[in-house]
Design a protein around this nucleic acid. Structure first.
Lengths: 190, 190
DNA sequence: ATGAGTCCTGAACAAATGTTAAGAAATGCT
DNA sequence: AGCATTTCTTAACATTTGTTCAGGACTCAT
């Protein structure tokens, strides 16, 4: 059983026939380090499951700087969800931070197999709910913690990301300047 | 047709029998101004539809101050979702900002009618997805805009809330001190 | 109407964070 | 290995935001 189907089977019960339908609806795609999967300005028509690798979503602000929205890890589903769900052009880019393997499904195929396998609606709901929980936590941190506290917390929860991406990505993810993050790091070393 | 059922019918097609099942699964509750519906420390077992009125969710931080998480308007579903979904005690309170009418359903009943009416899974997915979209926008604002810009934006999008709640609620919602919001207001008047 | 409490404003100062600019360190390419 | 490029650190200064405290405005119950 592929990691994709195994992942979905954590949440809903599937027959082997259904597993096969799901498996066939996704197609694989490899990304080299730095390669862009989703490009701003397009309407995002796909969702992907990360088999291996890491990705980052970011947009370019008015000053021309990259603002990192999210880091994405294996065993998760990714997309430019707002664009995907509202059929509007996305303002974000999604790029591979390292050699990455995706399994992709189009919106059309997702709707098609969701009709064949109604439990997939449950699965899709759970995915959305879990994203919600992650976002709520992030809002709370941005809203009420200092940059120092946010970084400390990220060190605890996502040290692997911090260690593997440029400092500037982490800084903009935390909503601060690279210089300030550098300052915070020095502070923590004491 | 109740506003509750009408709202759900925007997203999925329901027979009149199904509408009746849904209608019966919810029970009404009135809140006086200031009355608390969800109290921190409890596991939230319910979801409510706001028929009329406004609510606010907030928590008490380490310094004993209230931090406003969200404002909630009629025609929306509310809950302490993270608690509801993960069966963990909530740290938030949800209180009525004014005279409020809710229609409440328990988790157990929600699961029960979702089995009777499978399209409800689709509806629940859409609700979660729409919450996600709202949260993503809020994260982007907190992450990359100044307090002044966040307030300007809220003036555009939620002037009604700003006008009807104490300044301190708006301030903590925006992640700033009441004094600073007062300063921003003065600045904008010029 | 009166007074207690709450909420808002204002100002002075403190702390957090951004900006600029320069050099040091790391990385990638050939 | 060596050069070019990108990334990181540092420091000085600017700006934003928080904190404290005082007073004024507003609410609400009596």
């Amino acid at each position: 059983m592929s990691t994709l189907v195994a992942n979905i089977s954590q949440f809903i019960t599937l027959s082997s026939k259904e597993k096969e339908v799901i498996e066939k609806a996704f197609y694989p795609k490899s990304l080299r380090k730095g390669e862009i999967w989703i490009k701003e300005g397009n309407i995002c028509e796909d969702v992907a499951f990360i088999v291996s690798g890491k990705l980052r979503s970011y947009y370019i602000n008015e000053s021309g700087e990259e603002v990192t929205c999210f880091f994405m890890q294996p065993e998760n589903f990714i997309s430019s969800f707002t664009s995907f769900l509202t059929n509007t052009p996305t303002h974000e880019n999604i790029a591979a931070l390292e050699e990455t393997e995706l399994k992709i499904i189009s919106k059309k195929d997702l709707e098609r197999i969701s009709e064949l396998i109604p439990q997939l609606q449950i699965f899709r709901r759970i995915i959305a709910e879990n994203l919600f929980i992650i976002m709520e936590k992030r809002i709370s941190m941005l809203q009420s913690q200092t940059a120092y506290e946010r970084y400390e917390n990220m060190l605890k929860e996502n040290q692997d990301i911090i260690m593997s991406v440029p400092l500037q990505y982490t800084a903009s993810f935390l909503g601060i300047s690279p210089q300030h993050l550098s300052r915070i790091r020095k502070e923590i070393l004491k």
